[in-house]
Amino acid sequence: MSLYRYLLLLSCTIIMLGSPRVGAQDAPSDALKNFLAAQQQPLPLHVNFVQRRSIEGLPRPLVSEGELTITATQVLWHTQQPLQQQLTISAEGITAGGDGTTMRGSEVVAQLLLAVLQGDAEALAQSFSYQQTEHCLALQPKAAQLQQFIREITSCGSAGIEQVTIEETQGNRSVITFTPRESQADATH
């Protein structure tokens, strides 16, 4: 599973209040394309995650954990602890629970997400300014509408998924750590 795919999954889910297509459409650099290419892994992809979310005003972080499954057509975000919850992301949008109701304003985000999963670096470059190091990628949203909520998303990892940090404008901070699920790890090995 590509760390970058997780990063995009998270960032695209976050920006549901606006479209990332707004803003300058800078072409992706070769370095970014190479980074994405290096993270490409065969689908479907299954990983576990632990999210530690620090919210301003709460004395301790909220911890949740679960599984993530990415296929060619959709992404399943399945939180198992402390409460069961499943988000489905497809070309039609993002749905929470099993009622099939698409969350408001999520269509564009979902379409972008699928494009990312197919290795579309252009969509990423359109929506974010980025600084790239050897193992990390720091992304700042370009659109003012997104800047109201997200200050920066940092993704770190080498060959596989390791950690994504989301820093919100309000001061909230989410650190999401990924580990390959056993079946996936076995397949990789």
């Binding site: 889910t13 409460l83 989410s174």
Partner: peptide, 19 residues
């Protein structure tokens, strides 16, 4: 309450004062 807990688990921004 369950809805709020689920919402806090989602990777969506929280822009209100939770206190």
């Amino acid at each position: 309450i369950n809805n709020a807990q689920q919402r806090l688990q989602q990777p969506l921004p929280v822009w209100a004062d939770i206190q």
